[in-house]
Design a protein around this nucleic acid. Structure first.
Lengths: 342, 342
DNA sequence: GAATCGCTTCAAACCGCTTTGGATGCCCCA
DNA sequence: TGGGGCATCCAAAGCGGTTTGAAGCGATTC
C-alpha cells in the first residue's frame, strides 16, 4: 500500500492525503480523520526511502567506530552509550547507523557519510587532544556532537561531557579529608581527553592541600581488570605505598581491589578505593559488584542527552554550538575509610 | 555535485554516466574512463537516498535491541558481535542500523522496518526456545539470520551458531579424563537457547560416563561476575563440593575464580575451572586475565559470518535457508589439572 | 451583483538516481 | 545497395513521497 493507492481508495489526491497524515492545517478535520482511519485500516506506512529523497533529509544519525584501537571503543562503556542514544533516536523516529571502519578510513567515512547523504549528523566518540575530527566535520559541514571534549580545539563546537576534573578533584578531597596523603591514581590512557582532565582534578586537589603529586603514584593505561591489577600491585610494592587509590573505571577498580586483597590488605580499612562508575546497565556498583565509593555518572544517560542535543542541532543549526557539562555524584560506599594512624 | 551536473559537465546523458560508473557493458571503454576520472576529480558520490528509492533496496541491515531485558543484550558479547558484523557491512557498502526499543515494541519494530523499507534484512539476537520472532519475520517476509538457534521451531530458517552442546560436552569429558567426578555447571539463563544446549552437552557427557548429574551442582543465572561468584561460593560450601567448575563466560568465570580463591583453594590444583571464551576483543583470555582453560569461539568472527550470510540471503533469497555450525576450540590453560586423590 | 476572502482540494513539478525502450551511426555481408 | 547486427548513447518513465502554485466554492463585503 502506497500513497497513491491510498489516495485513490479515498477518492482524494495524494497531496491531500500526505498533508492529512502530516498534520498540515489546510485540510478539513473530517477529511483528516477519514484519512487517518483509512491509513490505519490499510496499515499504511509511508516509504522511508521516498520521504528521505523528497525531503532531502536522512532522518538518520551516524556513529563511526574505528576498529584498530581495539580497547577503547569496542567496550562496555561504548555499548551503554549507544543504548542510551538509541533510545532517543527511536523515540524521535530517527535511524541510528553504525559504521565500523578501520581507523585509517575514519576521515573518508565522514566525508562519504556527508556526500552520499546517509546521515544528518554524527556523534564523535572518545575525543583526544586536538582531535582532528572536529575541524574535519566543520569543514565538510556535517552537524556533530562530541561525547567529551577535545582540549586544544580553538573554535567552539557542540559537546556533552561529564565534569571529570571536578569529579576527581572531589574524590581526592574526600580522601584527603579522611586523612589520606599517599593517594594514587590509576588512570585511563592519557591521550584521551577525559583522562587528562581526571588527572588534572586529582593533581589540583593534592596541590591545594600542599601535597606534591608523586609520579610513582600515577599510572595510565587501558581500563581493564589486569591493567588495574598490575598498576596497583606495583604501587603497593613501593617502600611508601599508597593508602588510597583512585581508579578510572569499575573494571580497573576490580583489578585494583584484587591487588589490594592479594597483598593481604583489606579494602576500606588498609587501603581505600574510589572508582569512577559509569553506571553500566549490565554491571551495577553494589549490585553486580560489592559497593565501591565512586564518582558516578550514567553513560547511558549521557548517550540519551547527546543524541537529543544532536537532533536539536540538526533541527536548529542556526542556534550555534551547544555545550553541556554533567556533574558526577559522589557515592559513598564501603571501599573507603579513614587512614589508619600508626 | 549530482549525476545531472556531472553529465552536463561531460557532455553526456545521465544514463550513460550512471552506467559507466556502475560497470555496465554498453558503454565505450574510453568514455567510461573519462567518466570515472571526472567523478573522482569532482568528488562525485551518488546520493544514497536516491539510489535507495530508485532501486527499491535499502542497502541497510537492521539489528533490533530490546532494552528491558537489561543484562542479556547490552553486554560486551553483543558489542563484539556488532563490531564483527559491522566490518562485513562496511566492506559491502551496507549500512547497519540499530533499533533500540522497549521490548514490548519489538514486534512492531520489525513490522515497521519492513513496511517503511528501512532495511533489507535483520539479524536476530539471543534466541530463546520457540522464539516468536522467527515465525513473525517469516510472516512479514523480512529476510533474517538468527545468531544462535531456537529449539522448538519447526520450519527451517537461517542461522549461524556455535556448537554449544559439543563444546560443553568436550569440556566435561576433558575434566572427566582428569579424574574429576564432582563437576559443576555455572550456566547462563536457561531460557536462552545456547544455555540449554550447553547444559545438554554437560549432562550428556556425565551420563555417558555413568555419572548422575547432581542438581545442586547446576546453576543458571546472568553471566556477571557476582553471579558466578555467588553460584560457585554456594557450591563450594556443599558437604561434597565440586572439584571442577564449568562457567558459561569469562566474566562469570572470574567470579568463580574469586570464590575459589576466597575459599582458600588454588585454581587448577584444588579446583579446576573451564570457561567459555567468546574471545572478546577488549578482554583476552591470557592477556587481560590469567589464562583459563576454555572452549573458545570468537563472537566477533560470528558477527562477521552472520552478516555475510544475511547479505547472501538478501542477494539470493531463492537459495533457501542456510545454516552454519561453528565448532569451539578447546584451549588448555592453567586453570585445570588432575583431581587430587586423598 | 460583483469583488474579495478563507477554506479545501488538486495537478504537476521535483528530489536524484536507475532502467526501459528506442535512436543513431557504422560495419559487414548478401 | 539495402538490410541486419553491433556498439554506443540518450530521452523519458519510473521509484513514492513532498511541496508549490493555483483553482473551486460558498460566504462575506461593498
Amino acid at each position: 500500500m502506497n500513497l497513491k493507492e491510498l489516495a485513490t481508495k479515498l477518492g482524494l489526491s495524494p497531496t491531500t492525503v500526505s498533508r492529512a497524515l502530516n498534520g498540515y492545517p489546510e485540510v478539513n478535520e473530517a477529511t483528516r480523520e477519514r484519512v487517518v482511519a483509512a491509513a490505519k485500516r490499510h496499515n499504511y506506512h509511508p516509504n522511508t526511502r521516498a520521504i528521505r529523497l523528497a525531503t532531502g533529509r536522512a532522518k538518520a544519525v551516524g556513529h563511526v567506530i574505528p576498529i584498530a584501537t581495539r580497547h577503547e571503543i569496542v567496550n562496555p562503556v561504548f555499548a551503554d552509550f549507544i543504548a542510551g542514544a538509541g533510545e532517543t533516536y527511536s523515540r524521535n523516529d530517527y535511524d541510528m547507523v553504525l559504521s565500523v571502519v578501520p581507523d585509517e578510513d575514519e576521515d573518508q567515512t565522514y566525508r562519504s557519510l556527508k556526500s552520499k547523504g546517509n546521515v544528518d549528523g554524527v556523534i564523535v566518540h572518545a575525543p583526544r587532544m586536538n582531535d582532528p575530527r572536529i575541524p574535519l566535520l566543520r569543514e565538510i559541514g556535517l552537524p556533530f556532537v562530541v561525547h567529551g571534549r577535545a582540549t586544544g580545539t580553538a573554535e567552539p563546537y557542540c559537546w556533552l561531557d561529564v565534569n571529570n576534573r571536578r569529579a576527581f578533584q572531589r574524590a581526592t578531597e574526600f580522601l584527603l579529608d579522611l586523612g589520606h596523603t599517599r593517594i594514587a591514581l590509576v588512570n585511563g590512557l592519557e591521550f584521551m581527553d577525559f583522562a587528562i582532565r581526571r588527572r588534572t582534578g586529582f593533581v589540583d586537589a593534592l596541590i591545594a592541600r600542599g601535597i606534591a603529586p608523586d609520579p610513582s603514584l600515577m599510572s595510565s593505561g587501558e581500563m581493564t581488570e589486569i591493567s588495574g591489577y598490575r598498576a596497583a600491585q606495583a604501587m603497593l610494592a613501593l617502600p611508601d605505598p599508597p593508602t588510597a587509590i583512585l581508579a578510572s573505571s569499575m573494571i580497573s577498580g576490580m583489578g585494583v581491589r584484587r591487588a589490594v586483597e592479594g597483598a593481604g590488605l583489606v579494602v576500606g580499612r588498609d587501603v581505600s578505593i574510589i572508582i569512577h562508575d559509569d553506571d553500566l546497565s549490565y554491571m551495577k556498583n553494589g549490585e553486580d559488584v560489592p559497593i565501591f565509593t565512586a564518582t558516578r555518572s550514567s553513560v547511558r544517560e549521557a548517550g540519551r542527552l547527546a543524541a537529543e542535543m544532536l537532533l536539536d542541532v540538526i533541527a536548529h543549526p542556526e542556534m550555534g554550538p551547544r555545550q553541556r557539562l554533567l556533574e558526577a555524584e559522589l557515592i559513598i560506599g564501603q571501599s573507603t575509610g579513614p587512614v589508619i594512624k600508626n
